[in-house]
């Protein structure tokens, strides 16, 4: 379990992280999203001590880096694997040697190392590339090697720093599927730093959105997407801008798809006897839910009734305005 309380960090008088509070449970897939420069990678590096922080506390299974010496920190890091955007493999070593490197550094026996490396290459489906050099591999394959290396010391946590940002969408999907498989089979907590919302939607249980070094929204992925906090809108940018028509009020309804409300629009029209024009609707699949978003334009005088009806149904909604 990773527990972070009131963590602060500044560098040369510039605040990088401020009032960070979050808890990541064992076996959870946790997303840290934000635009570049938001401090997400720094926060990730604080977890395994690659970066230090000024005040507050950060404990990984009750281990607080600030209270240990360099040698103890090295041992502690065996519990935390890490992968990077540009794979960080040794270009002059083979796939096998790259995966074996951490075990070699920790003085494992040749037979133990050999067994573990072959086992891991099977997990990441690269058995036939065992003697290839990284330059002969595709980006996705390189990241698989890096994942195998990160898992070689049997960590409890895997940190991913923009691990899919240099990959094409299809390869990204396969790496995410692999991370999910690793999370399930080995019960390893995965902390994912990314600026791609699609990554969060696909595999994360929980997410925190970072803006200017602060956590501006946090919670289960479906909750954050349903609530549509301003920071999420900032992150998604123009792509999510809604078309607002004149002649009435434009409202946006967000809901989790379920038997109860998959007919919400026709139910509302029938029960309230209202008309509306539809300007947009979409359903998106998340790890554990399907979320819907609908944009409607309704008559000014019926907005109160509609609002009450939606609230009673437990659906969140908001009036969009032209500003």
């Amino acid at each position: 379990m990773i527990e972070i309380h009131n963590l602060q960090k500044s560098y040369n008088g510039v605040t990088i992280l401020k009032d960070i509070n979050l808890t990541i449970q064992d076996g959870e897939i946790y997303g840290l999203v934000g635009r570049s420069g938001a401090g997400k990678s720094t926060l990730l590096r604080c977890i395994n001590g690659l970066e230090s922080y000024d005040s507050g506390s950060l404990k990984v299974d009750r281990f607080d880096i600030k209270q240990h010496n360099e040698n103890e920190i090295r041992h502690f890091r065996k519990n935390i694997g890490m992968i990077f955007q540009h794979f960080s493999l040794m270009e002059r070593k083979t796939v096998y040697q790259n995966v074996a490197l951490p075990m070699k550094c920790w003085g494992y026996s040749r037979t133990d190392t050999d067994k573990r490396v072959r086992e891991l290459l099977k997990v990441v489906e690269l058995e036939e590339k065992i003697n290839d050099k990284p330059r002969m591999l595709s980006g996705g394959q390189k990241q698989r090697v890096a994942i195998a290396r990160a898992l070689s010391l049997n960590p409890k946590i895997l940190l991913c720093d923009e691990a899919t940002s240099a990959l094409d969408p299809k390869t990204t999907q396969s790496i995410l599927a692999l991370l999910e498989k690793i999370n399930k089979t080995f019960h390893i907590a995965v902390v994912i730093v990314t600026h791609q919302m699609s990554v969060v939607r696909k595999i994360c249980h929980k997410v925190s959105i970072l803006e200017n070094g602060k956590i501006s929204a946090s919670g289960t992925v479906s909750k954050v997407f349903l609530e549509q906090p301003q920071s999420l809108k900032n992150l998604l940018g123009e792509e999510e801008d809604e078309l607002i028509l004149g002649g009435g009020k434009t409202i946006k309804i967000t809901y989790a798809e379920s038997g109860d409300n998959n007919r919400i629009l026709s139910d509302m029209a029938r029960e309230l006897n209202v008309g509306f024009s539809l300007s947009g609707a979409k359903l998106e699949r998340y790890r554990d839910a399907v979320l819907g978003a609908i944009v409607l334009t309704v008559d000014d005088e019926r907005i109160a009734d509609i609002g009450q009806y939606l609230t009673e149904r437990g659906v969140s909604w908001e009036v969009l305005s032209n500003d």
Binding site: L50, R74, H75, R77, M82, F84, P102, C105
Partner: peptide, 8 residues
Amino acid sequence: QAAKSFGA
């Protein structure tokens, strides 16, 4: 950094 992350 990767090397540091596995405790080298």
